[in-house]
Computed example of a mutant assay.
Amino acid sequence: MPDSSVTNAHLQLQGVGVNFGAVNVIAGLDLSVRKGEMVALLGPSGCGKTTTLRTIAGLHRSSCGRITVGGRDITQLPIHERDMGMVFQSYALFPHMDVARNVQFGLKMRKLPAREVQARAQRALEMVQLAHLAQRKPRELSGGQQQRVALARALVIEPAILLLDEPLSNLDAKLRDEMRVQIRALQQQSGITAVFVTHDQAEALSMCDRVVVMRSGRIEQLGTPTEVYERPATAFVAHFVGRTNKLKGSVDAGGTLTAAGQAMKAHGRLAPGAVDVLIRPHRIGIALPPAQAGAQERNRIAGAISSISFVGDLVQYGVRAGSAEFVVEEATQRHRAALPVGSHVVLHWSVQDTLVYPAGDA
């Protein structure tokens, strides 16, 4: 899928392929990243996102295609000549060096003057708010602090591209949320071009300017977080980026959509055949009958609550409706009790939120 939406790209992959023996891991990948942009490579395990990142870094050699940075062809260059800063999932800090020397390492390898090495390392540690821990060893730091040291070490060399390989996966949920904000702020503050690999949709959507959803070594969709979430190009994207209810359905020769045993409406013209209908749980309203207002704008189906799960900020209802089982998410409210199991309800959702794809696409 050529990325024709970006001109004057800072990082560009053109027809890049990667083979591991007889296995084709990446197939003809085209991707353009603007200067100062942060782009996420998002997808399930084995989709090729980390291989793509490591190929940009020079850790894997491409079997075909071309990689350029600022118009300079780096396809055949060794790792140390590519001007990349990389933050690994494991942080990869040197355990025998203190924080300051870890951050200084890349500068010393470039044989910069000692005074410049110390000054730049100090600025980098101040940027990640760790200057006061410069003399500590990695084992004396928390996971979040080690992550920031790794980030400072990557940024201090002022690379052309910052590559982040699932850097938050080893952190607990609360710290992960904090680090999302910090990494994004540092990337915007420095103005560096960054590529971020993750399998976590929340990280991709909240941290990045654009999201590349990958599947089996190819780009399934590329767009802004809003575009990918609100207008998924395929059922795979809709299912992977966010939670969905999946209904089996069909479209007849006249364009009428049927799912869960009843006629429904969807936006746009539908091609006849078997289809999958996807509806996001939080886009479904749940009400006691009759709830008929605005019937022309919304799909409706009657059902009964079969289960309830309290998830702090959400109540998740299981609802048996027609021939399908729905999951419905509703924000909790302090003074409103959840509807009890067995309640007869009406589910309703916007025609715009009724996503229809050819059957089996996901």
Rank of each mutant, 00 (worst) to 15 (best):
E81W: 08
M97F: 06
F94K: 08
H335C: 00
E81A: 13
R210M: 07
L77M: 14
V311E: 14
V39Q: 09
L107N: 02
V328C: 01
A271I: 07
S306W: 01
F196Y: 15
D3K: 09
Y317I: 02
H60T: 03
R231F: 14
Y229A: 11
H348I: 04
E37R: 06
A131Q: 13
R269H: 11
H80E: 13
V275N: 12
Q333E: 08
F94E: 11
D361S: 14
R218P: 00
A238S: 07
Q147Y: 14
T193L: 07
V346P: 00
L175C: 10
R66Q: 14
V228C: 06
E230C: 04
A302Y: 03
N24H: 15
G294R: 11
I79A: 11
L164S: 08
S306D: 10
Q147K: 12
N170D: 07
N299A: 07
N19D: 14
H348F: 15
R82G: 03
H199S: 10
R280I: 03
A22S: 15
Q146G: 05
A302V: 03
T52L: 14
T193I: 09
F88P: 00
S350P: 00
E297K: 12
D313L: 12
A173N: 03
S216N: 11
K35Q: 15
I161D: 01
V275P: 06
L155T: 03
Q201N: 12
R269P: 00
P290I: 14
A27C: 09
L13E: 04
G106V: 05
E126Y: 00
T50N: 07
A22F: 03
S350E: 11
R218G: 04
R184Y: 14
G70E: 04
V149N: 03
H267D: 13
A331L: 11
T198I: 12
D276T: 03
Q12K: 13
A253I: 01
R72I: 08
V181Y: 13
G249W: 07
K248Y: 00
A9F: 10
R110E: 06
R34F: 06
S350W: 04
I279E: 03
K137C: 02
A274M: 10
H96P: 08
E126V: 00
N245C: 04
M179Q: 12
R184A: 13
P272K: 07
E126N: 09
S323Q: 12
R61C: 03
A124P: 02
V213Y: 11
M264W: 12
R231E: 09
L29G: 02
L112P: 02
V87P: 02
Q296T: 13
R82T: 09
Y91K: 05
E166V: 08
V39N: 06
D30S: 09
I279D: 01
R110C: 10
R54K: 13
I192G: 05
V275K: 06
F240Q: 04
G273C: 07
A359S: 14
R54W: 08
Q104R: 13
V99E: 02
L77D: 10
V319L: 04
V211F: 08
R148I: 06
V319R: 02
F105P: 01
V117F: 00
A253V: 03
Q104L: 07
R336D: 03
Q221P: 02
V356P: 01
L222V: 14
T256C: 04
